[in-house]
Design a protein around this nucleic acid. Sequence first.
DNA 1: GCGAATTAGTCACTTTATGCGACTAAAGTC
DNA 2: GACTTTAGTCGCATAAAGTGACTAATTCGC
Lengths: 223, 223
Amino acid sequence: MRDRSPRTASYSVDVVLMTAMGNELAVLFARNSTERERWSLPWRISQSGETLDAAAARVAQEALGESPIWMEQIGAFGDGKRHPSDADVSVAHMGLVPHETASPRAGYAWFSIGDLPPLSPRQRAMIETATRTIQGRLDQAPIAFRLLPATFTLSELQQMYELLLSKRLHKASFRRALQASWLVESIDEWRSEGRGRPAQLFRYAPKKRRRPQRGVRFDFLYP
Amino acid sequence: MRDRSPRTASYSVDVVLMTAMGNELAVLFARNSTERERWSLPWRISQSGETLDAAAARVAQEALGESPIWMEQIGAFGDGKRHPSDADVSVAHMGLVPHETASPRAGYAWFSIGDLPPLSPRQRAMIETATRTIQGRLDQAPIAFRLLPATFTLSELQQMYELLLSKRLHKASFRRALQASWLVESIDEWRSEGRGRPAQLFRYAPKKRRRPQRGVRFDFLYP
DNA sequence: GCGAATTAGTCACTTTATGCGACTAAAGTC
DNA sequence: GACTTTAGTCGCATAAAGTGACTAATTCGC
């Protein structure tokens, strides 16, 4: 590997790390080193010779001590002024972690999405985009599965979908659609949650299947 | 407007302008100023004080003399080396124009997507992302309508969808779904295309309607 | 002028997907 | 052991999508 001396780059790499905390989504923030009461999304000034994905992975690693199971770039943001760095542009990534296994390092903390700290407009836009991306890609990528532990009950899975979609789902329909998708596999374990019948545990194990070939959809309203 | 002296920024703004040319998608390229046989996507080095969207609009304007009807950022690209500029990172936008009204300025030309000139890996990735974005957002945004002239026949619309999806659609199903969507409106004009019954003209005129509230979809295969 | 060819547009029937209430099952609570 | 609670399934009703066959309006060949 060649060692090029890093030079000041005019863009930052920011990461929106999300988890499902209780009944709400939560985002990970880093405490500001100078103003102790200010928080911001974890970020770093990019270094030449590092890919965007690698930079984002490193930011996440520093915050959590581990890499998120799912990570995806959500775009470049340059319009809102006043980023914690002085960068003209920030490239944002979104990362998902199950809450059970995610313990932030010192100086980092989860904030529930309904109760965020004051932020720069640019970082606020990133979080807005991340939540919209989650909703929009829920049916195209295993978002919900990445927010759950490796094994889970079908009720937990349904509750995760309900949380992410902000709407109730019908149990029988949910399970029928899930069956048809060949995405999960039951394992020979049950979990008893105090009262009620114990639930069987499942894991995410997508199987080959024909891609459902539907006709056209016109699912947009405007414009 | 404040006049700040521009400084070298380490990112470029590139635009993937697309149109439907005959039976294929086509992308707009700019002739390289030094090597006359080389082509590249239109781009510019960003200037401080200009938003990303504004920079992209300006690049498109310079290439076409007009702004595309539809434009959307498709991400930041930093991994493939050797961009025409020396930028570490390039922010790419996608723009759509109807071919009928799109005449490139001198030094620019359309290349059919199946027959592209040699490109830097990074710009190749942008085009790849743009085509995937088109397919993925076809049912969520009026992509097909933006590639057609203001008035069109339903057969033309269906052919556009067939081109973008690379598959045949059934006429009756297509029209039934379109009716249900309240996206088009017939106008009192007919077009005769030589042989066959004349077709009524329509225009894109989305009407208010309830958002179709379906249950969950598990439409992904892997991962 | 007239039948064949061509493109537009619609209909009716079948198949598939989804919504939804009601049911059975297995545990804890009192 | 009756009641509550959560898990899991069944079956019917309704909605959406796939499909071939039909009618309609025009040009073309002769």
